[in-house]
Amino acid sequence: MVEIKNLVKKYGSKYALDDISFTINSGEIVGFLGPNGAGKTTTMNIVTGYLASTSGTVVIDGKDILDDPIEAKKLIGYLPEQPPLYVDMTVWEYLGFVFDLKSCDLNKEKHLEEICMITKIFGVKNRLIRNLSKGYKQRVGIAQALIGNPPIIIFDEPTVGLDPKQIIEVRNLIRNLGKTHTVILSTHILSEVQSVCNRIIVINSGKIVADEKTENLTKAISENSRYRVKISGPQREVASALRNVPGVVMVESLNERDADAFVYIVEGAPNIDIRKKLFRVLASRDWPILGLEAVGADLEDIFIKLTDKTGKKGE
């Protein structure tokens, strides 16, 4: 669907993007993750044809964005970082304008109504965009991207500046869109990609540092198996007993307490399942396990590890 090859973008002598390549298949929801200034927006702007790359190609469903921009752009709906709204228009007028601008071959009234329903802005359709709340403005921005039913939708930081309730709504909306569209989403919020995307591309200083399925990436990084265990028994003794279990590399006592039970984080060596051993050791001492759950590394960890690695490589 979207093929990006050896994309380089230089601003003056500085590389904003340094040889980026990836392919996005139809139906994927891809999270484009990176800290501010990593090159996310630049990539989005190049893919949508707003900027031209210094070198490299972007091909949308067989159409090159530079050689055949009109056909390629027809396939993309884009919500830039700042929604491109004409605040002196009402929502309905604005969407009508975008419809005409994209010269869509659809029943205008019906199509716009549909889109207002999907994005839940039907109730404000006659209000001036200037007077809408930030959450609504964002949704009008999303509606604008959906006009003409493009198969690919690109969102640049769609939840920035929204309140928590709005963030959840926008994420649900994106997840639903993902069922029928190919979605590319850029963000610097790790939980966002985790909750919405099925594939993650991590970018840092203009380079791709990881490109994995969401769960694979989580797995790949948490080389060690970590568990959160709640054990009834004297804290110090339990902790030292846990340390002596073969395969355990780290034990951390948490300050959480439930009657005579304490909570520990126990980490096993890579590829060793320490759960059975834990059970036997604790059973032999008559310290019952009240709870045991796996702790996957969250993306924060992943991110720090990945960016650190590349940072060191660069030095």
């Binding site: 044809g49 921009p69 009109i70 830039p80 700042q82 709204l85 994209k102 010269s103």
Partner: peptide
């Protein structure tokens, strides 16, 4: 200034 040029320039219009 209002970044609406992004809409015009990414729309399928020459």
């Amino acid at each position: 200034r209002t970044k609406t040029d992004q809409l015009l320039l990414t729309a399928p219009v020459p």
